[in-house]
Write a protein that binds this DNA or RNA. Structure first.
Lengths: 256, 256
DNA sequence: ATCTGCACTTGACACGGATCAAAGATCATG
DNA sequence: CATGATCTTTGATCCGTGTCAAGTGCAGAT
């Protein structure tokens, strides 16, 4: 459970969604802590109930564990329930590019619709639990649940939009602007999940952030150092405290 | 009709799809020159026939004309039939970011599924004709045509995948590599459409290419100059002749 | 408690591409 | 065909970021 500020290290309090690990496999979407964010959030009650029946819950992954392997046949969608993961791809020469980070309630594997194979690796950045939605069970549902169909299109559209927006925004600001944008975006997403938008732990390394933003890890480190000296935030290892979020947000510039 | 080498200027020979402008509005997808590339290409004959009925054909746009306005309500998908267009967005400070170029048979407006509004501007780069597929007619079809449903998911997945891949590839090569990749990609797509992969006219300006690749127009111009001096291609204004496509392709590196 | 490895920070330097500036080519117009 | 507007090329300079190289601090292992 990253993304939660802790006074003492190594005593991560559990997130709501997995406070009772034994019950995980039995719980329904309706009683899940993420039900306002997750895939079934916009379905009608009846649709949500039917959808509920096809979700495989309670799967766990250790830090570094692989959720999706690039190139394998697409057979399911995955929704992170607690913890976090990174989506990335590895080029022929071995360099890694991080496409994004998957937070609780977010879906991975969507790009597999392109050619029935996953294009990205997805790996846990910390102990992570997730739900699996097998396509063989999802597909038939699309016949009779127009809401679910719309939701699938919406999810894909959103992923596309986010990817375009990311490219646009990163493309036109310098290194510090990119890091600022990254922090502001993360802060916003954590707040959506009921976590503190100003105090959190980064589950990803500086290198991951760098490979996500198209920078080097040294440059990311320097950007954080600059923000720290400016009094905009505090950094201690992966623990971040935002002191002047507005400053970061304005610098990262959610430019439409 | 750009993307076709001409000996004399201003005498653009028409593409197959619109050789008889008067007949445009009546023609069906089956008899369209793009039918192996376009949206209905993977539908069963019956499905394709039904889909045919909802397509509004024969729409025309002058160079610079607007196909989609960002922020307006999403009410249709658009498929370019002849000519070409650019997808772009304009930030608050007025800077423009080009997300990509739409070639005949390619679909624009997909990102609108995210929130029922288009996120990108799409504008013709030359006299362009296109088909419009209204959502009000498309939606009901999804109930009964599983092939069309799959095709929609595939289209969105492909757009997502392409966006991710673009970011990954551009992110890790220098200016010349990006321009090389751009040319190699364009060449490939032109060949798919039965046009010459080695001789073509760029319908977009150097500035458009630059804003697409995250460079300045001067840098794009210099990259082309370098390739020219290396004997890899010939450039005369917007007319390109690739002399050593392999060199460009290897430089652009379709790195998986 | 000390060692070892890993992630991160900090510094020095070089280089690619942005920026500014100006000239040259091409296209649209009358 | 001449003219002005726009697009493109080319040159000079500067800055930001990548690269290389130490050095620091924390965490788990011995």
């Amino acid at each position: 459970m990253a993304f939660q500020m802790k006074d003492r290290r190594h005593t991560d309090p559990p997130l709501a969604a997995d406070c009772c690990p034994g019950a995980l496999a039995r719980v329904s979407c309706r009683s899940c802590a993420l039900n306002t964010l997750c895939l079934p959030a916009r379905l009608s009650p009846q649709e949500a109930r039917i959808f509920d029946g096809v979700v495989e819950r309670g799967r766990q992954l250790a830090s570094g564990g692989s959720l999706i392997r690039a190139g394998t046949r697409m057979d399911a969608l995955y929704v992170v329930r607690s913890g976090s993961a990174k989506r990335y791809s590895v080029s022929l020469n071995g360099t890694e590019r991080v496409h994004g980070f998957v937070l609780p309630g977010e879906t991975a594997g969507l790009e597999g619709f392109a050619c029935d194979r996953y294009a990205c690796e997805v790996a846990a950045l910390e102990p992570t639990s997730y739900c699996r939605i097998p396509l063989t069970r999802l597909e038939p549902l699309l016949d009779h649940l127009p809401g679910l169909r719309r939701e699938m299109l919406r999810l894909l559209g959103e992923a596309l939009d986010e990817s375009l927006r990311l490219r646009a925004e990163l493309g036109m600001c310098d290194a510090r602007g990119r890091v600022a944008r990254f922090l502001a975006d993360l802060s916003r997403r954590l707040e959506l999940r009921g976590l503190s938008p100003t105090q959190f732990r980064l589950s990803m390394s500086r290198g991951d952030i760098a490979r996500h933003l198209g920078l080097t890890l040294e440059t990311v480190s320097r950007a954080l150092g600059t923000f720290k000296r400016s009094g905009w935030l505090e950094v201690r290892a992966r623990y971040i405290t935002l002191l002047r979020p507005e400053a970061l947000a304005s610098m990262g510039g959610y430019a439409a």
